[in-house]
Write a protein that binds this DNA or RNA. Sequence first.
DNA 1: CTGAAAGCGCTTACAG
DNA 2: CTGAAAGCGCTTACAG
Lengths: 334, 334
Amino acid sequence: MKSTIKDVARKANVSVATVSRVLNNLPGYSEDTKRTVLRVIEELKYQPNAIARGLINKRTQTIGVLFPSVSSAFSSEVLHGIEHFAHDENYSIVVCNTAEDGRRTMKYLQVLREKQVDGIIFSSEVLKEEYYEALKAMDVPVVLVATHSEYKSVPYVKVDDWKASYEATEYLIHKGHRQIAMIGGYEGDPIAGKPRIDGFKQALLDNGITLRDELIFDGGFRFDQATVAAENLLSTAPEVTAVFAASDEMAIALISVAAKHGISVPEQISVIGYDNLKLAEMSNPPLTTIAQPLYKMGERAADKLISMITSKERVVSEIMPHKIIERNTVKKLP
Amino acid sequence: MKSTIKDVARKANVSVATVSRVLNNLPGYSEDTKRTVLRVIEELKYQPNAIARGLINKRTQTIGVLFPSVSSAFSSEVLHGIEHFAHDENYSIVVCNTAEDGRRTMKYLQVLREKQVDGIIFSSEVLKEEYYEALKAMDVPVVLVATHSEYKSVPYVKVDDWKASYEATEYLIHKGHRQIAMIGGYEGDPIAGKPRIDGFKQALLDNGITLRDELIFDGGFRFDQATVAAENLLSTAPEVTAVFAASDEMAIALISVAAKHGISVPEQISVIGYDNLKLAEMSNPPLTTIAQPLYKMGERAADKLISMITSKERVVSEIMPHKIIERNTVKKLP
DNA sequence: CTGAAAGCGCTTACAG
DNA sequence: CTGAAAGCGCTTACAG
């Protein structure tokens, strides 16, 4: 049988109130009683019950984190950052895989509410109104990571997607490329879709390159779907010398498809990715890409959330710095 | 203010006991009172407090999962399987990153105990005696995944590493290779190190190939360290025509290093990996590898754990099937 | 410096 | 079919 605070109180000949005080480092006991209480705790191998504590404190020291796909390299990197920061601050993480499914998300939100989490981090997906309403009803702090929203009360931490894409595109242009295609996301996606496409377009325009809409392919971000986009690209636009892929997986899909057709990267076609997952350096050839500081973003999100929890203060959103990591998939044209 | 069971009792003109009964689908009320209670619950948007429930039921419906590295592709795949199964059974997952650090692991074990998790899944690492003792003291079910232990009371779910390595090696031999090297783990690692090396050796012996210890390299499983092992291999043993890498990352490191030296895979050197991470199919060329059913392993581990929690029965360990996935990194020698 | 008591939000015998 | 009461393991005024 696990011992409770009563057991140690009895054995130490004090009241549970006193035990509670030494446990929580509150004032109100002599050095002597502290010593005996501590000794008894040791003898009984007593550990406080966080559930009982949570019930009364209205704090569970746990935060819920929602990802569209926990097993993606992207999510796991963010998760790692969150976990690391949170653990140091004595918070635990419960992970939720929404599978980008509304019902599943709502179910998880309900579970998190019932379990009285102290706060929630919502990652990579658009915060639908339905979710927002549920979150508001829960009345806990929320922070967004790798996404944003129109709800001003919800802070986010993310990269400037428009700008990052603009720079990726200019990088290609400065390397002498003029025939540039893009493998992006769905244009209706307001997070990782539209802004990146818009940044791409603007960079082209600002550099006097005619925009050709047929050179923008929807690759759905993941490898499989991007593979068909890449096939398409290569067969319909052989004049293209460089492509900007809005995710590393899509960039790698392009490389794979090119290899299959005997087209070599970067000699015959250049490509720059987006994310800088571990994948990128393991790629063959190693992938030049736009780095998002995913781990750091997770840490910052956890930091913000925890300060909202503890101080009830409003917190400001944060744009994280991106940067270009030059590896071997972009060739300088003469 | 969030409403409690008292609020709904009051508004519905019944006792909290009755509300609790309808909430839990217990017998003991008329259809009529059920209807009004349900209506009031709806009106008040009442949601039960799982913490209060947990305190009295001694069940939190949450399970702790410990990984050496949550952000690895390996762990996240297992995690996904666990999460999926657990969610369907109304359990939440709290993730813990041990970072292969004893102190951190012990700290997490303590947190999980205080938070009264119903069970624990321990992944990929050796279950040190210290951990085992802590777990025993917690008195909750434990299951191991992608690892095993000498403690008979702790069931595991894993692949047969010895056999899988044996088969990987024979696969290479049957393709006509005789000069075969291995990039493995640390021989002192009883989980993923020694068994795989032993399987490799035995396959060589059984096929009349002289064992050369200098052809077994320690690649530490991850890309970076494997890169130096691969450099070593290529420079000290140019006669090698095929290598068995005990993880996909190490196989890909070999491919990358080979490419850097202008050695083409599989034309000049063949390689077979281990794990079948998503990486493997994205590799260039696509990696032939031994597949571990990681997602499934996560599911099975969660399944076993939950049945231990609910039935208190002993559960048996399970060896999961591995299989060879043929892609394009192994060449048949004439 | 210390303890008795109330209470967090539930569930579960027990009694009717 | 229904309710009053005890209790889960803690914390926190309050009183001394």
